[in-house]
Simulated scan of single mutants.
Amino acid sequence: MKDFTVIFFQRKPRTYGNFSIEILFEAIRSKLPPFIHSKTVISKYESNGLWKRIYNTIEAYFRQGDINHVTGDVHFLTFLLKKKKTILTIHDCGFMNHPSRVARQILKLFWLKFPIARSELITVVSQATKDDILKHISCNPKKIVVIPNFILPGFNLFPKEFNSKQPRLLHIGTAPNKNLERLIEAIQGIDCQLDIIGKLNERQFKLLNNYNIQYTNYYNLTELEIIQRYHQCDILTFVSTFEGFGVPILEAQAIERAVITSSISSMPEVAGDGACLVDPYNVIDIRQGILRIIKDEEYRNQIIYKGKENVKHFKLEVIIKQYVNLYEQLLHS
């Protein structure tokens, strides 16, 4: 195979932002075969305002490679790139839930319609995201390729006896879609400890205190500290109202913890048969799911075992091969 270069175009991370995209593609680059040379181009400015975005787009034009891969969020960087050599990764369409109709139309044009038209191939992390894109714009479905996320090294089997008397629940994320408020209501009166990763707002603090929930709150954790929280928990609660993917499901399954997650969006696709699926908008359903995991040992062991089998489909090596095949396809097209 002849050597070639893939340029990974990445956003400039916000000071207090989410670094999941950066972590994801750093792991991918580290495992690429030797005939693929990779280079990361980080935009000079954060994705704020018209002029900074225009500058970032022009800058990207002058830094192209044999293959251009816009890794997410800054979809507009595709505008001046060579279409036939450009891949765009779209992680989710959450931005289309913006409350303003005008904003949704602008986002639809500049984050979906135009970037997709200016890219030869689109990768998405779930079938749910692909379906969302096709719901919002007209596009050849064959142009959109599903390549899921993967489990990072470090999330490995860590045996722990289930604490059925006072289980420790791990909840990751405090943004509106993470559905913490309904979870708090659902576990009222259940003897448990809730560990929350993510900075709480005033309303969430108030709910936790009003419902007398025993909880601890962590944020700005290192990856090792997050893994330690998984090790200590008995159940992962991931009852989001929307997710582009849902990596915590796989992380908990890899460590062999019971998972309760939502029956909508991408979560059933990611969890497979290795989780208790509930309606995230129904507090009673969430509560009953948690109680079933706590009280029904046979059911709990069954979803833990199926979760362990499920994660085999999401190993880094498996995902790398899919990206390499895509790069080679584009190179020879």
Rank of each mutant, 00 (worst) to 15 (best):
A128E: 02
A128I: 02
F76N: 06
G72K: 11
Y55I: 04
L77R: 10
T89C: 10
T78D: 04
T129P: 07
I122T: 01
H136E: 10
V102N: 13
Q64T: 12
K130D: 09
V74T: 08
D92C: 14
V102M: 13
I116S: 00
H91L: 10
K85S: 09
I90E: 04
S100R: 06
S100I: 05
R104Y: 06
I116F: 01
H98A: 15
L107M: 09
A60T: 01
E120S: 08
S138E: 09
S100N: 08
L109I: 14
H75W: 10
D73W: 11
N68C: 11
Q127D: 13
S138K: 09
I67W: 00
H98G: 11
H98L: 12
T71I: 05
H69L: 13
R53M: 04
H91S: 08
L121I: 02
I122G: 00
F62L: 10
N97A: 13
I87P: 00
I116R: 01
L134Y: 05
S138P: 03
A60V: 04
L80W: 11
G65L: 06
L81F: 12
A128F: 01
D132V: 11
A117M: 15
T86Q: 04
S119D: 03
V70K: 00
G94P: 07
I137R: 07
V70R: 02
I90F: 08
L109F: 14
D73C: 10
H98S: 15
I116Q: 04
V74M: 05
C93T: 15
N68Y: 05
V102W: 14
F62Q: 06
R63Q: 13
H98T: 14
G94A: 05
K108S: 01
E120T: 09
T89F: 10
I137A: 06
V70Y: 02
L121T: 00
K108F: 03
A60C: 07
I116T: 00
T86V: 07
I67C: 03
L80F: 15
D132Q: 13
F79A: 11
Y55L: 00
S100W: 05
T78Q: 02
V102R: 15
I67S: 01
T57P: 10
T86D: 01
D73N: 15
R104L: 07
P99V: 14
F110N: 11
C139F: 11
R53L: 01
R101G: 02
K84Q: 15
K84S: 15
A128H: 01
A128P: 02
Q64D: 08
L107F: 13
A117C: 14
R101I: 08
H75Y: 14
A103D: 10
G65D: 04
A60N: 05
Q127Y: 13
I67N: 00
G65F: 05
Q64N: 10
C93L: 14
P99Y: 13
I116P: 01
L77S: 11
L81K: 12
H91A: 11
I54V: 07
V74H: 00
H136A: 03
T123K: 14
H91T: 09
P99D: 15
I116E: 01
T123M: 13
G94L: 09
Y61N: 14
I87C: 03
K108P: 02
